[in-house]
Design a protein around this nucleic acid. Structure first.
Lengths: 140, 140
DNA sequence: TATTGTTATACTCTATAACTATA
DNA sequence: TATAGTTATAGAGTATAACAATA
């Protein structure tokens, strides 16, 4: 059967992304984290005392959707939260969060390596740059 | 703020794909079709009398999820369905479906062009090939 | 036995609107 | 007025299991 979408950038991105997301979800399963939760965990790890809404802006997650994600990380005892000013709340990883972050990073590294077998460092950087350029070509 | 996901292929694919999917949905809005429905429409157009389950296999849509998509296309009067054998059902576009397909193709072309400003034909083919290779590197 | 299509259902991610409290 | 966080809700896409009808 002819697939008329084969040559479409948007379609290829969607399929490639779906494959990697499915594999990532499976790779993270032993940590009990979903991809979105893991991405927030890594963002907190890289930016101690960051404010919740700022993570959302950086990761493209809306404020309203950050709430249950952070609630999950708090409920699992990975993150500590304290008032930054009266309305903002700073997030930091505690000891368990840091330990789990190391495991998450290792699992993501293994996962990523599965999908870039034949690309050298330069080709990988070019590919990432092209993807950023696609993302940045957003229409307004 | 540092985004520790910036260099991850999976993350860049996800973000780029999300941007294009959002724009595609908006580009298709005047047709009343969602991206998934449009993709099935194009698949039928390219493969007259194709069977429903085969479209699903080609597009990565499960049988169970094809049912409501095809039902929408039937309800909109774009597609005709007839028994292929006792259990399979052949799908063809009728006159309205063909007309809407032309509009969908035009809108997708415009949409795609927005996101590949500086790539020549060779670079585009290379990029598509890399995305196929990512997709094919699926673990089992 | 395997396949087609269907139904029902659940989960993940995303989107919007409205509310409070603080700045 | 604008921002941070919350709540509630809806939609779109995807996933699985079970079923009837047919190959």
């Amino acid at each position: 059967m002819i697939n008329p979408l084969d040559e479409l950038l948007g379609y290829r991105l969607r399929r490639a992304s779906a494959v990697m997301m499915t594999d990532l979800a499976r790779s993270l399963e032993p940590t009990g984290l979903r991809p979105t939760e893991a991405s927030v965990l890594l963002a907190i790890a890289a930016n101690p005392a960051v404010v919740q809404s700022e993570i959302g802006r950086a990761l493209g997650i809306q404020r309203a959707n950050m709430t249950p994600i952070v609630a999950t990380l708090l409920a699992r005892g990975l993150v500590d939260r304290s008032a930054s000013d009266g309305r903002s709340k700073s997030l930091v990883l505690n000891e368990w969060g840091q330990a789990l972050t190391r495991e998450v990073k290792a699992r993501i590294d293994t996962h990523e390596a599965q999908f870039m077998p034949e690309l050298d460092a330069d080709a990988k950087q070019l590919l990432l740059a092209q993807l950023r350029s696609v993302e940045g070509a957003r229409r307004h």
